[in-house]
Design a protein around this nucleic acid. Structure first.
Lengths: 205, 205
DNA sequence: TTAATAGTAGACCAAGCGGTCTGTTTAAAC
DNA sequence: GTTTAAACAGACCGCTTGGTCTACTATTAA
């Protein structure tokens, strides 16, 4: 095989498995040997491709996490239809994959933020940046919703974004603890309730 | 000093410092030596009082965390006044202590749940129990609010509780990441907005 | 005063960690 | 075919971890 392709393939395999394990067991609780064992690779291979465990993790964030974030939580809410409906569907889908215990990149962020908070400012910076992307996109979608007449013009777009991100990260933590499907269901109903309250009041003019 | 008093005092000191460090650095990332160093105590002292690190942690949960949970998040919302107002004030206060980086026991729970999820079912059970206490109390307060005419009788009390716990744990994670005070402010406004939407509609009869 | 025991100190251990280093295999370049 | 460098294997190192064990000290009961 072409050397460069082989390099890419190995790095990709390491990163995918790495994220999987970091997600399941946490960063500090996952050893490099754990990842290597899963792939039947050696220390030599790992340190040939990555400088350190930290460098490895940062690359995972920048490659896998950012990309998935876009496809799961950002792209689905872009468009010119009803913003609130788009966000609702997006959350619905994201939480549904979470019910089935698949990788959920909104949740991953929250998890890692708790883990690295106060310990590794450099990694925190990277996590913050991604969260910021999500936040900025939410704000702009909400503002679009105001212009399009779907959302009440008096609401604070920034505030809604903060509230949405919070409740999403929160329900995800709460879902791992017990009865994920039932909690998702209840959560979505209350989210719709909240959305109704910030929707534009019809024909008051 | 009386031996039994001394025993209690040492155990208490260990637990308080232990919780502090576990909260700041995580359970797996805090060594027993870290705690011992802080108090200038030895391994001998520790293992004379506790069977293991795990046993130590469980005792912290059962003593400190449960108690603080009551004083911070449960007792403040008991009473016969407007439930929604009580909860609002309670969240306001709890988040304010969080802004000042003090121990926040609602957040502690969320943090530990992420950390132990899938790793230590026994500890997860203990954390779940505490969360359940919070949840049950919220539900009963909300139901009281319905009876008292403060909350719309059609809302799902269980759902509201899920939504509240989620958003609380979520905003706490989000607050550690950046500008805690501003985010708290924005969050509270949206929470009030949500509360308004589930409040009993006045004199429609 | 003495015997017994709770409390404490800290050397020690095996296991696991991130990371290094040397040697071997593999594949592209000539 | 030979050379060269990338890809990989795995022994090894220094350090930290949770936990044990033996010895010393302080306190209480007799």
């Amino acid at each position: 095989m072409d050397k460069n392709l082989k390099r890419m393939a190995t790095m990709q395999r390491l990163q995918v498995t790495g994220l999987e394990l970091f997600y399941r067991n946490g960063y500090y609780n996952t050893s490099i040997d754990d990842i290597l064992k899963e792939l039947s690779l050696s220390k030599g291979a790992f340190y040939h491709h990555f400088d350190s465990k930290e460098d490895f993790f940062v690359q995972i964030i920048q490659n896998l996490v950012v990309r998935k974030m876009y496809t799961m939580l950002i792209e689905p809410i872009e468009g010119h239809e009803n913003s609130l409906e788009l966000i609702t569907n997006c959350f619905e889908n994201a939480l549904e994959t979470a019910v089935h215990n698949e990788l959920d990149f909104g949740f991953i962020l929250g998890n890692f933020i708790s883990e690295f908070n106060g310990k590794n400012p450099m990694i925190m910076k990277h996590l913050s940046d991604i969260l910021k992307i999500w936040e900025v996109n939410l704000v702009s979608v909400i503002q679009k919703g105001k212009f399009n007449g779907y959302i009440d013009r008096h609401v604070d777009s920034e505030g809604v974004a903060v509230f949405l991100i919070s409740s999403y990260m929160g329900i995800r933590t709460f879902m791992v603890e017990n009865t994920p499907s039932a909690r998702k269901y209840r959560f979505m109903i209350q989210l719709r309730q909240y959305f109704k309250s910030i929707a534009a009041k019809k024909e008051i003019v």
